[in-house]
């Protein structure tokens, strides 16, 4: 199913990108671009980037392309314009394009890391044994198997139903605690606040490692160590840390495509889905390490606003 959707989207994206490049009519080019970029939004959904897909449709397809169409309307008396270059330029451009494409496809196919990674829930230790046996049966000796704590869930207990400030304070306290224990460590975690269903006075904060543990030399999550770090701190007087639970998991790295598929489809294994990407995005932008870039992006929009106004008005003002 995923493959069918992918090839459908890929066909639409590439064919319409081709139309953008070859048509003689600028308006047709703009509409073809709209379809192509819409297909890219579809890719984002396939890649677990739901929020980005929505933004792609709203801002890119909705906003930017309307802007481009306005540009087309205001600069062309006729719709059919001289779009194409003479053959003397087309040929070298095609040549360069093909060489570039060849290089990119080669790099994408065989020069980039393409080892798949899977993480399974493993609450009883049974999964690790099962995966190891499956790997042996499939002859995948090169795969690396690692048992680890994939997620730590901290549970806070309040005196009464929790208000938003309490939630924020708890989150800050966790961040500060991690930071104090090891500078630069807070950005190694995805931190997500979860409400506890049916218990408004409780609050759970889930911690997950960003990236793979091997990439930065940090030890994997260790619930007892985290409890030790966070136990002494109480974010507010009416809020206590009452439980630190680790979620055991098995991480399998260096899988070939066939083995990856086999493991994924095994009914006895439960794949651990990462914390929600939309919430993770919001966290990274508003509370995490990307606050400064967020501000800079706002500044860039201000510059664009002012700049467009100045350039548009300078012809009118005497």
């Amino acid at each position: 199913m995923e493959a069918v959707v992918f090839y459908l989207l890929a066909g639409v994206a590439v064919v319409f990108a081709g139309v953008v490049v070859t048509t003689r009519n600028v308006v047709h080019a703009a509409f073809a671009l709209m379809v192509s970029l819409g297909a890219v939004a579809g890719f984002y959904v396939l890649l677990d980037a739901d929020f980005l897909a929505v933004i792609q449709l709203l801002v890119y397809v909705g906003g930017i392309l309307v802007l481009v169409l306005f540009g087309v309307m205001m600069t062309s008396g006729r719709l059919i314009m001289q779009l194409r270059a003479p053959v003397g330029q087309l040929l070298p451009a095609t040549f360069v394009g093909l060489i570039l494409l060849g290089f990119l496809l080669h790099v994408g196919r065989s020069e980039l890391p393409n080892n798949r990674t899977l993480v399974f829930e493993d609450s009883d230790g049974e999964t690790a044994r099962r995966v190891a046996r499956l790997l042996r049966e499939l002859g995948a000796e090169s795969a690396r198997l690692q048992s680890e704590t994939a997620r730590v869930v901290l549970t806070f207990q309040g005196a009464g139903p929790l208000r938003p400030e309490a939630v924020r304070d708890a989150r800050r306290a966790v961040e500060r605690g991690l930071q104090a224990a090891r500078p630069s460590s807070s950005r190694l975690y995805v931190i997500q606040v979860q409400e506890v269903w049916g218990a408004p006075e409780r609050l759970q904060i889930a911690l997950e490692r960003k990236g793979t543990p091997a990439s930065d030399g940090m030890a994997p999550l260790d619930p007892s160590r985290i409890a030790e770090i966070l136990q002494p701190l109480s974010p507010r007087e009416d809020l206590r840390l009452i439980a630190v639970q680790g979620l055991r998991a098995v991480r399998v790295q260096g899988l070939s495509e066939a083995v990856y598929r086999r493991l994924r489809e095994d009914p006895a294994l439960r794949v651990l889905t990462p914390l929600s990407t939309t919430a993770g995005l919001g966290d990274a932008l508003m509370l995490g390490e990307f606050l400064l870039p967020f501000e800079v992006a706002g500044l860039i929009l201000l510059v664009a606003l002012m700049g467009a106004a100045i350039i548009a008005r300078k012809g009118i003002t005497p």
């Binding site: 600028v26 001289q82 779009l83 194409r84 270059a85 451009a93």
Partner: peptide
């Protein structure tokens, strides 16, 4: 490389 129209 080939378009002769800034918007394109």
């Amino acid at each position: 490389l080939t378009r002769r129209n800034a918007i394109a």
